[in-house]
Structure formats: C-alpha cells, structure tokens
Amino acid sequence: MSAAKTVQAKEGNLAASYSGQAIILRNETVVRAPRPGYLVRFLPEGSLVRSGQVVAELKPPPSMEKNRESINLPSPTPGFVCYHPDGWEDVLVPERWSRLDLAGLFKNFKGDVGDHSQVSGAGEPVFKIIDNLSEPYLVIKLDKVGKDDLSRGDAVELQWSGGSGKGKIVGTKAVGEILLVVAEVLQAQPGLPDDRLLNLKVIKQECEGIIIPAEALVQHEHSTGVFTYSPLGFRFLKVDVRGRLGDRVAVTGIDPGLEIVVNPWVATRIQKDI
C-alpha cells in the first residue's frame, strides 16, 4: 500500500459538546403580601395552578390575631408555583434578553433566596407563578469556545442534572475566550428547575452520514471525493459533503466499511505514475 494511510468509513453524526453555566429567563408573576404575617402554604412547590386558585394563606402575626383574619392568596395567572422569588423576576424576562448586559449578568447575579414564610412588611414577595405556556430562554456562558462554533439559528440539545431539552440559539456574543449564548428552550423533559442558575451541556449536532477525516477529501477530475484502498488498488469515489465540524466531515456517496485514504496525494501520485 506504499505510504498511503487509511481509516475505516463509519456511519455516525457530527456533534460537539460544550459545558457551561446558564441563567434562566422566564415570564414570572410575583405575589406580594398585603400586610405583615406568616405564610401557610396550601400547595407544594411546583404545583400547576389555574388563575384564581388559592395557593397560600397569610395569617396575621400573633400580636394581631384577635383583630385580623387570615387572607387567602390566589394565583393571578395559570402556571407553576414557586415559593422562592429571587428579585430578578422583572429583569430576567425572555422578551428583554437583547437589552441585558450579558457579560455583566453572571458577575452581578446572586441566586441566593431567603425564606419568605415570615413577612415583616406589606409588599414583600411571598411566592411567584412561573408561566407554563411561554418558552423560557437561557443565557449560557461557555468557556474556550470559538465564536463561530455556535451561531444564531443553530438547533442544539440541552442537558442538565435531571433533565434535557431542545433549544434554538437566538443570539451570541464573544467576550475574550468566553462565548455568551442566548437560547430559546423549545422542549424540556422534565421542565427546567426552579433555581435560576444551573450547570448544563450544549450539544450541537451537525448532521448524519459517513464520518471521515476532512483531510481525506480531494478534488479529482473536477469532483469532490475520496480515494479508497483495497487489494485491487486505489479507487476514486465522488461524495457529497453534508457538514463539517473541526477536522471531521459527514459525507454521503460511499458505504461504511471502506478503507478511506487520509493522505490522498499518495493515491493521486501513484495514479499519475501508472
């Protein structure tokens, strides 16, 4: 086989995986206490409620129990109950992502939330309702990712602890070696966690086909293709390139199992000498 080097053609798909942190943007409605007191929860965290359904009861503080009655707190909208408002509900909204300081968001964000069962004053948040009918967005911070690795319009798979989903990239911003990505979450099984900050993987699947090294491609007789090798010698086969990711390409037009020459100049030279 002279100096020719080969690899076996295999079926597969081109996919790249990136790990990072994400902050969730959702449409959320905060319910605030009309007066001091302490909260009695009627429903567990994550319950799906209809508009007007009573979620909790605000009892008066002990010093006022004789003079005031308890107040029922209904849900203002349908959605999921969350008893941990974090103060970002009016800022981290999907429709406003383009106005956010994406680079400064992770520096300024604090995901700590306190216990809202004791209410010291009127207007304090006691729970929120997460809209279950609108798609959430994610602002994702990825380290050491090329600015061209992920682009607007790319379909991606999202994976986090206990769940996964599908997403579509709607915007990117490169800051040094960091790539900030904004993705719309189209499907999530199960839904995203209540905590706004999470670790996740972003998987970009290019396409399916026969996966070979990009260096195996060669222009020969006005066509793009590869050289295969067998005991009968070299043979040129045309291919259609479906996609490229790094140093690999997905092609059609050849069968799996063929020995593909990865230094095709050797085959070209031998054919010229024949």
Rank of each mutant, 00 (worst) to 15 (best):
L150C: 06
R152Q: 15
G153N: 05
D154H: 15
D154T: 08
D154W: 12
D154E: 09
A155I: 11
A155L: 13
A155T: 12
V156P: 02
V156Q: 03
V156R: 05
E157A: 14
L158P: 03
L158I: 07
Q159F: 15
W160K: 04
W160P: 10
S161Q: 14
G162P: 08
G163V: 12
G163A: 11
G165C: 07
G165F: 12
K166F: 08
G167W: 02
K168R: 15
K168V: 15
V170N: 02
T172E: 04
V175L: 08
V175A: 12
G176S: 12
I178A: 11
I178L: 10
V181N: 03
V181T: 02
V182K: 06
A183C: 10
E184Q: 14
E184R: 14
P190Y: 00
L192A: 04
R196T: 05
R196W: 06
R196D: 04
L198H: 07
L200T: 01
K201M: 06
K201Y: 04
I203E: 13
C207R: 04
E208T: 13
E208H: 13
I210Y: 01
I211S: 05
I211M: 07
I212A: 00
A214C: 04
E215P: 00
A216Q: 02
A216S: 15
V218I: 13
V218C: 04
Q219P: 00
H220T: 00
H220K: 06
H220Y: 14
T224A: 05
T224Y: 05
T224W: 07
T224H: 05
T224F: 05
G225N: 02
Y229Q: 11
S230F: 03
S230H: 04
L232S: 13
G233Y: 09
G233H: 07
G233N: 08
G233T: 06
F234W: 08
R235S: 12
R235N: 10
